[in-house]
Structures are given as C-alpha cells and as structure tokens.
Amino acid sequence: MSPHRMDRPSLLGTVTLLLACCLLFFGRTAYAQTLVLAQISDRPKKDYRQLRPMADHIVQAMAPFGFRRAEVRLYPDLPAFEQAIRNGQVHWITETPLTAARLYQHQLAIPVARKWKRGQQTYQSLIYVAKDSPIHNLGDLAGRIMAFEHPDSFTSFFLPLQALRQAGMTLVPLDSPHQSVPADKVGYTFSRNERNNLLWVDKGIAAAGALNDGDWSIPDRLPAELVQRMRIIHRSPSYPRAFEMVTSTLEPEAREALQQALLSLDPERDRPLLQRYEKSSRITPLEAGDLDLLRSLEVETLP
C-alpha cells in the first residue's frame, strides 16, 4: 500500500480495498477453525473428559493460527481414525507407542513430544500367572488361554504377542475364554481392561494375563490383594509411555506452536491440567531414538 495511491483514491481502489477487507475478514474467518485433538477410544466418555481440558488450554496458544475453539474427537478403530486424519479432520493426536507407530509409519502424523501418561515416562509389558500356577515360562502357556487387554494395546497385546512369538508360540484368537485351545497353541482373548485381565487370571478364566508395569506398581490401579497372588513370568523392554503427535493438517508454524505450547507446560504449575490429561505428570521433548523406535515397531505383524 503506497501513500501515492492513498492520495488518489479511486472507485476501483475503494472496491479493491473493500474486497480485500472482505477477503481478509472472510479469510480470517475461514482460518479460525477448530483445533481437533483425537484418539482411538473404546471408552469415549471417559477419554473425552480426560482430553478436553488440555485441548481447551492449548487452543489458546493456537489463536494466531486461527484456532479459536478446540474439539476432542474419538475414533473407535484405527481405520476410522486414519481416514479422518487423511480427510484433514485431525490436527493433534495423543497416543501410545503402538498407534503412534502405525500413524507414523503410515505418514499420517509425526510425534512432537513424549507424554508421561499416568506419570510414566516409559513402561514395559508384564506377563503374569497365578502364584500357584504350574506355568513358569512362556513355553508353559501352550494349550492355555492368555488374556490380553485390548487389540490396540501396546503393552497388553503388541509387546506380549511379540514376546510369545519370539518364544516360538503360535497364538490363536478366541471369541470367548470358554473356547478350547489346541494343545500346541496359545489361545488369547481380550479382557477389555486391566482389572478384568487380573480377575480372569485370578479366577482361572485365563491362565495368564498381560499388563504394563504401571498397572502393577501404581497403587490402587489394581486390587493389591490380587496382585500379590500373581507371579510375573515375563517382562518386556521399556518403551516411551505415550506420544503427542501432529498431522499435516497443521501448518508447520502451527505445529511448531503446538509443540511449544505442549512442551512449555510446567509439571508444577500446570499439574492439575496435566493430571487431568490422562494423569500425565509432564510432557517432554522427544528423545533420540524415539523416531527410530516408531519406525521399527512391526506393527503390521499384528493379527
């Protein structure tokens, strides 16, 4: 905008200005979209409640990029989730390593930070049996039923499955724990949550269960009485607990801003906010090897 033109205002110039203003207005309005935080969830109500405050907080930092509002979207399974991401409906994802690896490997999202979900920076998978069980190693599980938590669970499906495969066991999925299992294979079924997992093992519905070490060690997560009746027969290596990811729907600057907003959360100052955000204790930058880890996880081997 030159001063000269300002000196000679014309109808065209005026119209152009008005149009520019309108464009600016409408452009800004079109740009003031909703920041969408998404996750795969089979308990949408709980998860929505856990995610919403953080979304509402972070969106404030995203205002310069036109994000006035925040929204939590929960998808029942990976395909639906990936489709939504491809459709550009998701900006921000908070997920455990398994889903994070899948999205990363499918180039739908990239990690921007580690999330200390449930206060854990990392976690590992445990395979356990009842103390009085005759099972002492993974090979003893042949012909038995193994209870996993969820098909999307990293520590309670992916990691134990890997471990069993590596131990040379063949696994067959079961519709219900009452089904019989071939003597040379390990049948598995999903307990839907950690307490069920433990109860099944305790009540003999399943011969062994798989949980992460957080479930095991954090008090009140599981009935201590039951936990004490269990014996751990396998521990996996430790993995980051969860990742904060962004999609390509966000502009690079906006990604940067989001990453900064997340990393700027102070464990002390923002404790309540973090606590409500899936009981997280802090959010820290990615560490070396995180991307490699995500890239190397053999997610496609899952049934």
Binding site: S176, N196, L199
Partner: peptide, 10 residues
Amino acid sequence: LYHLDLTEIG
C-alpha cells in the same frame, strides 16, 4: 456378562 467383563459387572 457375554464379555465376561467382571469389571463392568462389578
């Protein structure tokens, strides 16, 4: 009950 979801039942 179908899922033997003892947690939810509980």
